[in-house]
Design a binder for these strands. Structure first.
Length: 548
RNA sequence: UGGGGUGUGGCCAAGUGGUUAAGGCAGCGGGUUUUGAUCCCGCCAUUCGUAGGUUCGAAUCCUACCACCCCAGCCA
C-alpha cells in the first residue's frame, strides 16, 4: 500500500531507462576485506542489490582487495556470510585481485602514453612536495624521465628487484590542481606482502584509485555508487577511464554515508573496541556490525526496513537510534513467538488453589495461529515481576496493589490478600484467584484495569539473560577523544529469568517476545542445558516513560 | 585560506516556478485491546540556513552572506 520512498538515484535510473539510455542497471557492492561489515554497509548493500533487483539488473559482490597488508580470508568469509544473511545473492563474485594482470598492463599503457612515471622519491619527499590546500605542489625530479626508463623501472618493481618504498608509479596529471587527488596520484606501490588470494604472485599492488574504476569498467558496472568522501576522486576515476582502453564507461554517483546516533561506524574504531577488549568480538551483540546485530536478534527484514526508512540523499545525516529499533520492533512484532518470562521475581501464593496445576494451551502469537501453541501451567505458586506490584501505587498504576486485583494473562483474575516481608523486603504475596474468570471462558463479567505476566513456580525453568544497553554514554562517541572515556560500564548486565518450560528449549533460530518486556533471541552459546537469551530491544513502554 | 559538497519541523525525507509544503520515525490526543505492546483514528512547518532581488506568483530562478561536512595515506 505504501509506495517505496524514492530517492535521486532510483529516479535517475528510472529516467535513463525511460529515455532508452540504459537497458538494466548493473551495480556492485565493493567492500575491502579488512574488517566486518557494519550497519553503514547495510545501507550500501540494500541500495546496490535493491536497485538491481528492482530494475531487473545485476549486482556483483566485489572485494576491493588491493591492500594485502590489511586484508584477510577471515574477513572475506564473514562479509559473504553477512551479505547472504541480509537476504541478497550476488549475480557474480569478483575480486579486484582478479584484474591485477590487466591493471598492470594498463599501467604500462599509461607509461607508454606519457601518462605515468616511476617516482623514486621517499614517501616523506612525496608528502612534502604535494603542496597544501592553498599552495600547489612541486613536480618530482623523476617526472620527465624517458618512457623506456619508466617501463624498465616499473618491470623491475614488479620483478621484486626493489624494496618496499623504493619507488612508486604515479599518474602524470598536474601538481598544481586544486584537487589534491589529481596531484600526480600514486597508482602502484611496492609491498612485499603475500595476498590472501593472489598469494605471492605480486609484490606491487594498485591503489584504490587505479583499481576501482577499471574494475567497474571490466565488469560492465553502469552505476558505481559510493559515499560522499569519494566525490573528489571522481575526476580521477574518469581520467583513467578516458586514458585507458576500457570495455565500458561506468559512472560514479555519490550518496551520504549513514551516521547512527550513539554508535561508531569506522572500521578503525570498531577494531579498537575489539582489540582493546571493550567488547568480546566483532559479533558482540553491542556492536553495530551486521554480525553483532544478528547475534543481538535483529532480523534481516528489520534491517532492510530500516534502510528503506532512512532514505538516500547527499545530505549529512545522523539517524536517531530509535529508528533502527523501531524498524526492528515493527518486523519482530509479527515474527516473534510470544511467551511469558519473569526477570525479577516475587513469589505469589494462590491460597485458594486446591486442584492440581492447570494445563493451559496458549498460542504463540495471537494473530498467527499457524505459529502453533504450547502448554503452560497455572498452579498454587507463581512468580510475577517485582515491578508489577506496588504497595504505595502512584496515580494511574493498574497492576497489583494491596487489596487490589489484576489479571494474570491467559489465567485468572487474582485478588491481593496479604504481603509478606522478610527483612523489610517483599518476599511473598498471598492472593486468591477467582475461578469464574478463567481466560477465554470468563463468566464473571469482572473487569480489571491491568493484566500482567507470570510463570508457574513449580514448572518454570531458569535461563540466563544478557541485558544490553548502549555501548556508549554519549550520543556522539565518534567525536570523543578517547573511546574509553565514553564506554558505558553497564552495556551488558547478566541476569536470569524464570520462563515457562517451552521457552527453556534451545532454539537458536527463533525470535521471541517476552510479553510486556521485549524481544529476545537465544545467543549462539545457548545449549540445551544452558539456555541464554539476548535482549534484542525492549517493548515500547508508555508507563515507564510517563514515570520518568 | 584552495577545491568539492550540503542546508525543508526533534530525527530522516519528498518537492526542481502556480491547489491549503507528501510521507516515515518521534511527540501529543482519542479509540480498540486479557501485552501500559500491537492495531486504528486525529493533531503536529503561514514556512523551506539568512538577507536582498526577479516574477501576477518562489522551498524551487538570481545575488550576497552564514553554518556544517569532505580532501594535503605509498588506506579504502
Amino acid at each position: 500500500m505504501l509506495e517505496k520512498p524514492t530517492h535521486f538515484i532510483r529516479t535517475k535510473i528510472a529516467e535513463q531507462i525511460k529515455q532508452g539510455q540504459l537497458d538494466v542497471p548493473v551495480t556492485r557492492f565493493p567492500p575491502e576485506p579488512n574488517g566486518y561489515l557494519h550497519i553503514g554497509h547495510a545501507k550500501s548493500i540494500c541500495l546496490n542489490f535493491g536497485l538491481a533487483q528492482e530494475f531487473g539488473g545485476r549486482c556483483h559482490l566485489r572485494f576491493d582487495d588491493t591492500n594485502p597488508a590489511k586484508e584477510s580470508q577471515e574477513y572475506i568469509d564473514a562479509i559473504e556470510a553477512d551479505v547472504r544473511w541480509l537476504g541478497f545473492q550476488w549475480d557474480a563474485l569478483h575480486h579486484a585481485s582478479d584484474y591485477f594482470e590487466t591493471l598492470y598492463q594498463w599501467a604500462v599503457h599509461l607509461i607508454q602514453h606519457g601518462d605515468a612515471y616511476v617516482d623514486e622519491q621517499s614517501a616523506e619527499a612525496i608528502r612534502a612536495t604535494r603542496g597544501t590546500l592553498t599552495e600547489p605542489g612541486v613536480e618530482s625530479p623523476y617526472r620527465d624521465r624517458a618512457t623506456a626508463e619508466n617501463v624498465a623501472r616499473f618491470s623491475q618493481m614488479r620483478a621484486g628487484e626493489l624494496p618496499d618504498g623504493a619507488a612508486v608509479l604515479r599518474a602524470k596529471i598536474s601538481m598544481a590542481s586544486p584537487n589534491l587527488n589529481l596531484r600526480d596520484p600514486i597508482i602502484y606501490r611496492i609491498k612485499h606482502v603475500s595476498h590472501p588470494r593472489a598469494g605471492d604472485a605480486w609484490c606491487i599492488y594498485p591503489t584504490y584509485d587505479f583499481a576501482h574504476g577499471q574494475s567497474d569498467a571490466i565488469e560492465g558496472i553502469t552505476h558505481s555508487l559510493c559515499t560522499l568522501e569519494f566525490e573528489d576522486h571522481r575526476p580521477l576515476y574518469e581520467w583513467f577511464l578516458k586514458k585507458l582502453p576500457v570495455p565500458s564507461k561506468p559512472k560514479q554517483t555519490e550518496f551520504s554515508r549513514l551516521e547512527l546516533e550513539g554508535t561508531v561506524t569506522s572500521k578503525r574504531k570498531l577494531n579498537t573496541l575489539v582489540t582493546e577488549g571493550y567488547v568480546q568480538g566483532w559479533d558482540d551483540p553491542r556492536m553495530p556490525t551486521i554480525a553483532g546485530l544478528r547475534r543481538r536478534g535483529y532480523s534481516p527484514e528489520g534491517i532492510r526496513l530500516f534502510c528503506e526508512r532512512i532514505g538516500v540523499t547527499r545530505k549529512p545525516n545522523t539517524i536517531e537510534y530509535q529508528i533502527l529499533e523501531g524498524a526492528v520492533r515493527d518486523d519482530l512484532e509479527g515474527r516473534a513467538q510470544k511467551g511469558l518470562a519473569v526477570l525479577d521475581p516475587i513469589r505469589v501464593v494462590v491460597d485458594n488453589w486446591t486442584e492440581s496445576p492447570l494445563a493451559l494451551e496458549i498460542p504463540w502469537h495471537p494473530k498467527h495461529p499457524e505459529y502453533g501453541s504450547r502448554v503452560a501451567y497455572f498452579g498454587p505458586e507463581l512468580w510475577i515481576d517485582r515491578s508489577d506490584f506496588e504497595e504505595d501505587p502512584p496515580e494511574g498504576f493498574f497492576r497489583l496493589t494491596p487489596g487490589g486485583s489484576v489479571r494474570l494473562k491467559y489465567g485468572f483474575i487474582v485478588d491481593h490478600v496479604e504481603t509478606i516481608r522478610v527483612d523489610g523486603r517483599i518476599e511473598t504475596l498471598i492472593v486468591r484467584y477467582d475461578p469464574a474468570t478463567r481466560s477465554g471462558q470468563d463468566q464473571s463479567g469482572r473487569k480489571v484495569k491491568g493484566t500482567i505476566h507470570w510463570v508457574d513456580a513449580n514448572t518454570a525453568q531458569r535461563v540466563a539473560i544478557r541485558w544490553y544497553g548502549p555501548l556508549f554514554t554519549v550520543p556522539d562517541p565518534a567525536r570523543a577523544d578517547e573511546l574509553a572515556s565514553v564506554i558505558n560500564p553497564e552495556s551488558l548486565i547478566k541476569r536470569t529469568a524464570w520462563v515457562e518450560p517451552a521457552m527453556a528449549v534451545c532454539q537458536p533460530d527463533a525470535y521471541w517476545q517476552f510479553e510486556r518486556l521485549g524481544f529476545f533471541k537465544q545467543d549462539p552459546e545457548s545449549t540445551p542445558k544452558h539456555v541464554v537469551y539476548n535482549l534484542t530491544v525492549g517493548l515500547k513502554d508508555q508507563w515507564a516513560k510517563k514515570q520518568s
